[in-house]
């Protein structure tokens, strides 16, 4: 199946009428996923958006429940019902894969280590079910792009429902899941026959990987169980870290959150689920005043081990998609490849 660029805009216009469509929009020179109302505003040239696409399914601040008193009893409005049908358009393979990895954490399942996750996060589940991900393959890697080291590649279909692979002035369409099949059959008038997506995928992948310069050594992932934060290697790896939240807030697989209450009126308050970051000082602060991770080294090691050790033992996957945002945006110049190389050397 193929989709031409003009038809793509018509398809988007059609989708906007019935659904919320998120697409990369260039605003003041910064590209981010925003709800669009006009298909002309999208920007598919930017290789990597500033913030990852996870905020479509996992917003930074998500009002989950409103409580108010009426007739002497406490009333509750749960906000799950308000979640609309959404299309995430133009996500990159690393973004789509990030959302897939986050499923591990948010959905009920039996884990690799024998444990059982009994409950699903209803907000995540609802959003995830109502979101169709249409991702586009990358044609050019950035200096910090390293997805090929982490189980996917620049034209990977993992995590996406539909994958668009650029082929000249058209896209070759690869339908991956049932959700994707539904969408393509519903809007079949925009798609034309022809094209060999598997072949183009391989071609795009090879062309893009030839230019890739950034590589992460992940062969040691899952072997760091004895590398606790008192190991001197962490001090070396984290040197210069200023404990800001950039690497976690801009990571497609970071999922820490907390809930906060806010009084709206004297008899009404809202509970909001909002992002938290393990690099913040108050992340593990206990009510007693004790902080189990008082110094940066502890918090830094927790962040890296969470992705390359704990997640591997729990779910059998590395919680990193190699998008390179943490290496690119870090104000202290700490890169993932450097960190993992140092850790590998300490084993």
């Amino acid at each position: 199946m193929q989709l031409s660029k003009e038809k793509m805009k018509e398809l988007l216009q059609k989708l906007i009428e019935t659904k919320r469509v998120f697409a990369p929009v260039n605003e003041n020179g910064n590209t981010n996923f925003l709800p669009i109302s006009n298909p002309d505003s999208i920007d598919l040239d930017t290789v990597r958006t500033k913030a990852p696409a996870k905020e479509v399914v996992f917003p930074q601040a998500d009002k989950i429940v409103t409580l108010y008193s009426k007739d002497g009893a406490i009333q509750k409005i749960e906000d799950v019902a308000r979640i609309e049908e959404t299309v995430l358009f133009g996500a990159r393979p690393c973004d789509a894969r990030g959302i897939e990895i986050l499923d591990n954490f948010f959905l009920a399942q039996s884990r690799k280590d024998g444990g059982e996750q009994k409950y699903s996060d209803p907000y995540w589940k609802e959003r995830r079910e109502k979101t169709t991900i249409i991702s586009t393959a990358c044609t050019r890697p950035l200096a910090t792009c390293g997805c090929s080291s982490l189980g996917i590649h620049p034209a990977s279909e993992k995590g996406a429902d539909i994958l668009l692979i650029p082929n000249g002035d058209k896209f070759d369409v690869m339908v991956v899941t049932n959700k994707g099949k539904e969408l393509t059959s519903k809007y079949s008038e925009f798609f034309t026959d022809g094209g060999n997506p598997t072949e183009t995928q391989q071609k795009v992948k090879n062309a893009c990987e030839a230019l890739m310069t950034f590589a992460v050594d992940t062969s040691n992932a899952g072997k760091f169980e004895n590398l606790r934060s008192d190991n001197p290697v962490w001090k070396k790896a984290s040197f210069g870290c200023i404990s800001c939240g950039v690497c976690t807030f801009f990571c497609p697989t970071c999922h820490c959150f907390e809930t906060r209450d806010r009084k709206v009126a004297c008899d009404k308050f809202e509970k909001t689920k909002c992002w938290d970051s393990c690099s913040f000082n108050n992340y593990s602060l206990e009510a007693s005043g004790h902080n189990p991770r008082p110094v940066i080294v502890d918090r830094f090691s927790n962040r890296v081990l969470d992705k390359f050790q704990y997640h591997v033992t729990l779910y059998g996957e590395i919680a990193c998609t190699g998008c390179g945002r943490c290496s690119d945006l870090c104000p202290a110049g700490i890169t993932l490849s450097d960190t993992l190389a140092k850790l590998g050397g300490a084993l």
């Binding site: 404990s243 800001c244 939240g245 108050n282 104000p331």
Partner: peptide, 19 residues
């Protein structure tokens, strides 16, 4: 666009209030 990641605070040499 601010995400309240506090990079501007943490990078600031005059911000030394710490915890």
């Amino acid at each position: 666009r601010c995400t309240l990641c506090f990079a501007c605070r943490d990078a600031c040499p005059a911000c030394y209030c710490n915890e």
